[in-house]
């Protein structure tokens, strides 16, 4: 499957959300020559990181304080291991809401 994506400061942004079978796997990227300034430097630079639900992504000082506070509170409330499990769609839940409220 060939898709066009955007490289942005060490991350690859896809044009639409995908669900992947694994959190980490190899992809082939067609780098435009004009964008590669120095191959040696590039290899020592920050590894490209795929955007997504990557639990191994380091949670460190690169994040703004406000987000760290939010994340800590969310982890404390939901439990650190919490992962969202797909259920009803928002639209289905909104319909339930209207039924509950106005039935």
């Amino acid at each position: 499957m060939l898709v066009e994506a955007i490289y942005d400061n060490g991350r690859v942004i896809f044009p639409m959300p995908y669900r992947f079978a694994h959190n980490r796997f190899t992809i082939k990227i067609d780098l435009p020559d004009i964008e590669v300034v120095d191959e040696g430097m590039a290899s020592q630079g920050k590894a490209a990181e795929m955007l997504g639900d990557d639990e191994s992504k380091p949670f460190n000082s690169e994040y703004p304080d406000e987000y760290i506070r939010f994340k800590k509170l969310q982890d404390a409330s939901f439990g650190k291991q919490y992962e969202y499990v797909l259920g009803k769609t928002d639209r289905e839940l909104i319909q339930e809401y209207w039924l509950e409220k106005h039935a």
């Binding site: 896809f14 955007l51 939901f78 992962e83 797909l86």
Partner: peptide, 11 residues
Amino acid sequence: KRAQVNPYYEE
């Protein structure tokens, strides 16, 4: 934290 439906939410 609905990453499955929106992998960009955090970003």
